[in-house]
Design a protein around this nucleic acid. Structure first.
Length: 491
RNA sequence: GGUCGGGUGGCCGAGUGGCUAGGCAGAGCUCUGCAAAAGCUUGUACAGCGGUUCGAAUCCGCUCUCGACCUCCA
């Protein structure tokens, strides 16, 4: 496949031409949610960013295998060096079985992905269903001399690893220099080296989920599931690995170490990281308490926002920024995005109402240019921001055609619709069609009302005409007078 | 302290060694009973100080400043 796509690879810190390992197939792995609570709007941004990337790869014609894992098991280590079982904690807090917790939040997560028009991945493997695969990877790491077991736990031997592979290549961290700054951490005495990380954590009496392993009962470490599942479904090395920027320095670094340690190769050719969603210039995070849930934004219950916003408006807002840039969310920013969004959408919905006339070569060429510029923007590391700027240009041309300021033939009209379908709907993933299907002939009803109002206006009965217009506005229908007559818009 | 990335017009937000990003808001005009919508016109911004260059907001250096990560995070 002849591709012009360039993407920014965190590994090389520069844009690289995208050349899949096994075209036309593309393997894409994205770190999914941990199901111990509801994903917040910041989490959502990452999933939307990679949904757009998945969509564009598919649009280009690649046969993409998209794997997004679900973390429903495993232990992480917190900033104090303590071993934490988030799902177990949530289970105790909500007085449920771990599986109930996972099920509950998975339903929420799935609803969220549908609400925001995310395409389902090909596979959404869960960590709990791949304990055996995780154990096998750990065994390989030990076999290769990069892991050691202590009292029923297994750790990754970073020092040994560094004899053969560079550690810290993603984030640019230098472990040797960091050693001097090792903080006094609790529960670290089993490790040989401060940077060693857990592959398997021995059973603790408080654990609510326990699995058997060659090292005794316990839980897998946080990072190993991704190595096991990406290997199982995409092979020991594949094309693209994605995730949030905050996973770069630890989680992804350790994934690379595990993959190299077990299989001798970096799992992914291209590492992509999406940036954080900020609130008042600060990253949204649970520890800072400056986060809110996507559904609060949709139903307008968040005190930070003056009104509810449609999921497609929120998605459009996110697409207005580049996935690698920080994005600041605020009521003002969303309102401005919403206005722009409505302008686009109303224009796009009117394409079918353009009266076809004679072919317009100038317009045709402008449309081809817009289409080419959309592609160029997306080819340049998924520059959705520039792509949207092109769509605003398109909306201008549509409006002019609609109001007979320029002429368009069927050929141009079809091209307009095709660009909208390709880029606005398919690639950016914005669902702009009317959600509420109207089951009666609204056009006829509206035509009747518009005729009555027209007669009133001809009779200079402006009281009646304004009354009709105001009542319709209140009901959510906006009348628009122009030279050609009156049209309506559902607002 | 280390690593990485920012500081762009009233706001949001792209980009970049010389050619208008775009959106929102504002102003003017056209249309119009009024309004809305739509169309047209309008804004010469790139943290500061030096340097490189015919030319820098874009490259280099320094300063200030903000943020992320450095075993919780998407």
């Amino acid at each position: 496949m002849n591709t012009t796509l360039h993407l920014y690879n965190t590994l090389s810190r520069q844009k690289e031409k995208f050349e899949p390992l096994r075209p036309p197939f593309v393997g894409l792995y994205v770190c999914g949610p941990t199901l111990y609570n509801e994903p917040h709007i910041g989490n959502l941004r990452t999933f939307i960013s990679f949904d757009m990337i998945y969509r564009y790869l598919k649009y280009m014609g690649y046969q993409v295998k998209y794997v997004r894992n679900i973390t429903d098991a495993g232990h992480i280590t917190n900033s104090l060096g303590e071993d934490v079982d988030n799902i177990g904690i949530a289970a105790r807090l909500e007085q449920m079985q771990p599986l109930e917790i996972v099920y509950k939040y998975n339903l929420k997560f799935q609803l969220l992905t549908k609400t925001f028009n995310l395409l389902p991945p090909n596979i959404e493997p869960t960590a709990s269903a791949h304990i055996q695969e995780q154990i096998e990877i750990i065994e390989k790491i030990i076999e290769n001399g990069f892991g050691y077991s202590v009292n029923g736990s297994v750790y990754f031997d970073v020092k040994k690893y560094m004899e053969k592979f560079p550690y810290g290549i993603l984030s640019g961290r230098n472990v040797d220099e960091l050693e001097a700054e090792t903080r006094a951490l609790q529960g670290q005495e089993e490790k040989k080296f401060f940077a060693d990380f857990g592959l398997w954590k021995r059973f603790d009496p408080n654990d609510m989920q326990i699995w058997r392993s060659p090292w005794g009962k316990g839980n897998p470490g946080w990072h190993i599931e991704c190595t096991a599942m990406s290997t199982k479904y995409l092979g020991k090395t594949f094309d693209i690995h994605g995730g949030g920027m905050d996973l770069k320095a630890v989680h992804h670094e350790n994934e690379i170490a595990q993959n190299c340690g077990a299989l001798g190769i970096n799992p992914a050719k291209y590492w992509l990281h999406s940036n954080m969603l900020n609130l008042n210039g600060k990253k949204m995070s649970k520890s800072l308490g400056n986060f809110f849930m996507p559904f609060e934004l949709i139903d307008g219950t968040s005190p930070l926002f003056s009104k509810p916003y449609e999921p497609s408006v929120i998605r459009f807002f996110m697409m207005m920024g580049h996935y690698r840039s920080e994005l600041d969310i605020s009521d003002e920013a969303l309102q401005s995005a919403e206005k722009g969004y409505l302008r686009l959408v109303q224009s796009f919905r009117n394409i079918s109402k353009i009266t076809p006339k004679t072919p317009n070569e100038t317009l045709w060429n402008q449309l081809l240019q817009i289409e080419a510029d959309c592609k160029k923007a997306m080819d340049d590391d998924f520059n959705t921001s520039v792509c949207i700027a092109q769509l605003f240009e398109l909306a201008g041309l549509i409006n002019k055609s609609l109001h007979h300021e320029i002429e368009a033939s069927d050929r141009e009209i079809e091209k307009m619709q095709q660009i909208v379908t390709d880029y606005f709907e398919t690639v950016l993933g914005i669902d702009y069609q009317d959600k509420n299907t109207i089951r009666f002939d609204l056009d006829s009803i509206m035509q009747m009302i518009i005729d009555i109002r027209k007669r009133a206006r001809e009779n200079k009965d402006y009281q009646t005409s304004d009354q009709i217009r105001d009542a319709l506005t209140k009901a959510g229908i906006e009348l628009k007078d122009s030279k050609e007559g009156t049209s309506y818009e559902i607002i």
